[in-house]
Computed example of a mutant assay.
Amino acid sequence: MLRSAGAPAPGPIPFPKGFRSGFACFVGRPNAGKSTLTNAIVGEKIAITSSKPQTTRRIIRGVVNRPDAQLVLVDTPGLHRPRTLLGERLNDLVYETWSTVDVIGVCLPTSQRIGPGDEYLLSEIAKLPRRPKLVALATKTDLVSPERIAQHLVKIMSLEEKLGIRWETVIPVSALTGDQVDIVVSELMAHLPDGPPLYPEGEVTDEPTDTRIAEFIREAALEGVSEELPHSIAVVIDEMKLREGRPEDKPLMDVFASIVVERESQKGIIIGHRGERLKQVGQEARLQAKQLLGMPVHLSLHVKVLSDWQRDPKHLNRLGF
C-alpha cells in the first residue's frame, strides 16, 4: 500500500476504535479542478493551480483530519501523451499512485462535455489489477445552470455501463464556492479502511517548505507565457536561510532560487523588458512565501538555461524528477 510512501511520524499514534485512514487521489483532464479541489479540502494551498496543462509535476500529499478518520489526498500529475522523458516519468507516477490509493475521485467538470479524454482515463483505471473505489465529482458547478448539472450527472451515470466501471456515488461540487466540499470529504472517508492515523494531527502536508516555495515561483512564472513555454519551466531553490544579525522579533528569510528554461530565447521571455516580468514573478511568489513562513522574505531570482532538460536523464535527476 501507499502507506509506506509517505512520511508519517515515528511510533504509533493513538486512535479510537473504528477509526479510518487511507489515501485518495483526484484524476481528470487538464483544468478539471483537481488541484483547486485539493486545496479547498485541505484548507490550505498545497498545490499550485494554473490554466496551463501539466501544471502538477510532483506527488503532493495533503492531510485532512476528522475525529473518526484521516484522509490523505494525493495530488498527482495529469495523465497525458508524453513527448519527453519527463512526461514518461510523470505518467509512471500517475499509474503507481492509482494502483495504491484506496479511492479515486474522478473530476468531470460540468462546464465541459464528457469526451474521449475522460473515457480514456477511466478505461485506463478499469485496467488496473487492483482497482480503487471510484467516486465521480461533477466539478465547477458554479459555472453552469442547474439544468446543465442535471444533464451532466445523467451522462456520468451512463459511463458505468459503457466502460464497465462502478461509481460509489456521484457528487456535484464547486471548489470555488465550497458547495458540497464537505460532502466530498465525507464520501471519500467512508471508503477508507480501518486503521490508525498516518500523520500527526495538525500536519497538512509532508511537502518540504523549500519545495512549496519553488512551486509558488513556478506558478507565478507560468501565467501569461506562451503555450509551449510552461513545459520548459522548472524552479530550484539554491539556498534558503535566516538573515544573520536580525533581531529575534524581526526575522527575515533569504531565498535564492533559479528558474530553469531550455533555450536562451525562453530566458528572455521570463526576464522580460528591463527585467519587469521577472520582478513581477518575484513579487507574487514572495507574498505566498511570506504567508507560508509567517515572516518577511527576501527572494532573489535568476534564470538559467539547461538545454532540453526535459529529455536529458542527468538534468531530470538533478531537478528532482
Score class of each variant (00 low, 15 high):
L2A: 09
F15W: 14
G18F: 12
A24G: 08
R29P: 01
T38Q: 03
I41A: 10
I48Q: 02
T49G: 02
Q54L: 13
R57N: 14
R58Y: 08
I59F: 06
I60S: 11
G62M: 04
P67M: 03
A69D: 00
G78L: 01
L79A: 07
P82R: 07
D92A: 11
L93F: 13
W98L: 10
I104S: 03
L108K: 04
L108G: 03
P109D: 15
T110A: 15
Q112M: 08
I114E: 10
D118S: 05
Y120E: 12
L121W: 07
E124Y: 01
I125R: 05
L128G: 09
P132D: 08
A136M: 07
L137R: 08
L137I: 09
T141K: 03
D142W: 15
D142G: 13
L143A: 15
P146M: 02
I149E: 13
H152V: 03
V154E: 11
I156P: 03
G164R: 03
T169C: 08
V173G: 05
E187Q: 11
L188A: 13
P193D: 06
D194H: 15
P200E: 15
E203H: 14
D206V: 05
E207M: 11
T209W: 03
T209I: 12
T211A: 13
A214N: 05
R218L: 12
L222M: 15
L222N: 13
V225S: 00
H231D: 10
S232R: 07
V235G: 06
G245L: 01
R246Y: 06
D249N: 09
D249P: 04
L252M: 09
D254V: 02
V260K: 02
E264H: 09
E264I: 04
G268F: 15
I271A: 01
G272M: 08
H273W: 05
R277I: 00
K279R: 14
V281A: 00
G282Y: 09
Q283W: 02
L287P: 00
Q291R: 12
V297C: 04
V297S: 08
V303P: 03
V305R: 03
S307G: 01
S307D: 10
L319P: 09
